[in-house]
Amino acid sequence: MLSTLPKRLSHFTGLVEQAPAAREPLSTGSQAVDGISGGIPRATLTEIVGHASSGRTGLMWSLLQRATTAGEFCVLVDVQDTFDPASAMTAGIHLARLLWVRCSGHLEHALKATDLLTRAGGFGVVVLDLSGTPGRITRRMPVASWFRLRHGAEQSGAALVVISEQIQAGSCSRVQLEVRQKQCLWSAKLLRGIAASAGLRKRNQARIASFDVSR
């Protein structure tokens, strides 16, 4: 009986490793974007960059919506304090499963909080939202801090996602997704959404995916 225990345990461990929630990349909510990027990988650093109204925040919200719906806990480190809970709830994000850290423009606080929460373990997605932070401030961030954040994500298994205007982490990020607005979609008296495109910065610049960000 005891002699077969290691074999039984290895079989059991194999089952755990195949658990879909633990290993599969996260979906962005757009099949086209998932098609070119393979989804948002876990246990590493991903950058989603784009200008204001490009659809980058919509992608991030879609990621949080899917993760919280699947029962995962997520973190949003909001450097400029621009997260709107009412709109997020309308978009389907389970706010009770979201830990929101408002940093009121303090980048050092944001980095420290992201580092602590990435290493804490148990979170599916950790988002560092740098949007709106002036480039002269983000450029001061040492490269070592990005290595440290990536290492924390590798240890805890969380998908660490950085949202900003420009690439910040450089070689530390595995996936760099650049989002651009193609056009605004209007109806008679309403803003209907954005037609956007996403391209991979690192792997193949030529691969572009188009998607709609609807209101």
């Binding site: 919200w61 919506q65 998607f211």
Partner: peptide
């Protein structure tokens, strides 16, 4: 799961 929604 919904499609990508416009964030505010």
């Amino acid at each position: 799961p919904s499609s990508v929604r416009l964030a505010f």
